[in-house]
Computed example of a mutant assay.
Amino acid sequence: MSDSNTTDFTNPSTFILLGIPGLEAAHVWISILFCTMYAIAILGNFTILFIVKTEPSLHGPMYYFLCMLAVTDLILTTSTLPKMLSIFWFNSREIDFSACLTQMYFIHCFLEMESGILVAMALDRYVAICDPLRHSTILTNPVVAKIGLAVVLRGGMLVLPSVLLARHWPYCRTNIIPQPYCAHIAVVNLACADIRASSYYGLFVLFCVRGLDVIFITMSYIQILKAIFSLPTKDARLKTFGTCVSHLFVILIFYIPALFISLMYRFGQNVPGYFHVLIASVYHLMPPTLNPIIYGVRTKQIWGRLLRVFTHEGA
C-alpha cells in the first residue's frame, strides 16, 4: 500500500475498505455466508413483491407496508453487499470518496426508513385489532401512500445532515476504513477535526428517532394486548394475537441486535475488533434475509398464494 494511505494528505479522492481486519484468511468463507444471505434476501423480497402484486386479495394496508419493507430491504442490501463481495473475492478495496458518502447515506437512510415502516405496520395492527370496524376507512389507500411518503421523507431528510457534515470535515490522517462498507462513525473518525457535531447528531437520530419509534410501537402493542385480553374466548385471543406474531418477530430482529451492537461498541472494550465488524455486517443482512421468510411462513395468504404458484407450475 502506498505511503499516501498512511501519511498526511488532504481530502482523499478514494477510501480503502479493509473488509474484516483480522479475519482476512476467512474472507472467502465469510463471503459464502454473505452471498447466501444476499441471494435469499433478493429472492425472498422479490417473491413478496410479486405475490402481493398478483394476488388481489392482498391489496390492503398490511401488505402495502410489507411491500415497502421489501423494497427497503432490497435497496439496503444492494447498497452494501456487491462492494463487500468484491472486497472478499477480488480484493477490490478502493471506493471513491463521493461513492463512500453515497453508500453511507443509503445505509443509514434506509435503516431509518425500515424503522419508520415498522411503526406504520404497528399502526396498522393497532387499528385492525382495536378499531376493526373503521380499519378500511382509517387506513385508506391515500392515507397509506401519505404514510409511506412521510417515512421516506423522514429517513432521507434526517440522514442528509450527517452526510453533509461528513463531507465538510477535512481528512488528513488516513483513508483506511477498517470495515467492508462506509458506516457513518467509521468515516468521520478518520477526520482530523473536532467531529462532536457529527457524533451528537448521530446520537440524536439514534435515540430521538429510533427511540421514539420504539416507544410508539410499545404503546401500540400495550393497547393491542389490552384489546386481545378483553376478547371472550381463548381461541379468539390466540387467533387475534397470531396476526401480530410476524410483525413482532420482525421488530425483535431489527431492534434487539441494534441495541446489542450499540452496547458492545460502548462497553465491549475487550471484544476483538473483527467481532464488532463481523456482527455489524451480519446485522445489516439479517432483517432483509429473515423478513420475507417470516412473513412468507407465518402469513397464510402469502404462503397459500406461493403454494398455488408452484403447484400450477408443476402441473
Score class of each variant (00 low, 15 high):
residue 169 W to V: 03
residue 169 W to S: 08
residue 169 W to E: 09
residue 169 W to Q: 12
residue 170 P to C: 08
residue 171 Y to A: 05
residue 171 Y to D: 01
residue 172 C to A: 12
residue 172 C to K: 07
residue 173 R to Y: 14
residue 173 R to S: 12
residue 174 T to N: 08
residue 176 I to M: 07
residue 176 I to V: 15
residue 177 I to A: 00
residue 178 P to E: 11
residue 179 Q to A: 15
residue 179 Q to K: 10
residue 179 Q to M: 14
residue 181 Y to D: 02
residue 181 Y to L: 06
residue 181 Y to S: 07
residue 184 H to T: 11
residue 185 I to C: 09
residue 186 A to Q: 07
residue 186 A to K: 06
residue 187 V to M: 05
residue 187 V to K: 02
residue 188 V to T: 05
residue 189 N to Y: 10
residue 189 N to M: 12
residue 189 N to R: 13
residue 192 C to E: 03
residue 192 C to K: 02
residue 192 C to P: 04
residue 193 A to P: 08
residue 193 A to E: 10
residue 193 A to V: 10
residue 194 D to E: 08
residue 195 I to Q: 10
residue 195 I to W: 14
residue 195 I to V: 15
residue 196 R to F: 12
residue 197 A to H: 07
residue 198 S to K: 03
residue 198 S to W: 00
residue 200 Y to K: 11
residue 201 Y to A: 05
residue 201 Y to Q: 05
residue 202 G to H: 06
residue 202 G to V: 09
residue 204 F to S: 01
residue 204 F to E: 02
residue 205 V to K: 14
residue 206 L to E: 09
residue 208 C to A: 11
residue 209 V to K: 01
residue 209 V to R: 00
residue 210 R to E: 08
residue 211 G to K: 08
residue 212 L to D: 01
residue 213 D to P: 06
residue 214 V to I: 14
residue 214 V to M: 15
residue 215 I to A: 13
residue 215 I to S: 06
residue 216 F to V: 13
residue 217 I to A: 04
residue 218 T to I: 07
residue 219 M to C: 09
residue 220 S to C: 13
residue 221 Y to P: 03
residue 221 Y to C: 11
residue 222 I to H: 10
residue 223 Q to C: 10
residue 224 I to W: 00
residue 224 I to K: 02
residue 225 L to K: 01
residue 225 L to N: 09
residue 226 K to S: 15
residue 226 K to F: 13
residue 226 K to C: 13
residue 227 A to Q: 03
residue 227 A to K: 02
residue 228 I to K: 04
residue 228 I to P: 00
residue 229 F to A: 14
residue 231 L to H: 07
residue 232 P to S: 04
residue 232 P to D: 05
residue 234 K to G: 13
residue 234 K to I: 15
residue 235 D to I: 08
residue 236 A to V: 13
residue 236 A to G: 11
residue 236 A to I: 11
residue 236 A to R: 10
residue 237 R to N: 10
residue 237 R to V: 12
residue 238 L to S: 14
residue 238 L to H: 14
residue 239 K to P: 10
residue 240 T to A: 11
residue 241 F to S: 07
residue 242 G to D: 11
residue 243 T to M: 00
residue 244 C to R: 00
residue 244 C to I: 02
residue 244 C to H: 06
residue 249 F to Q: 04
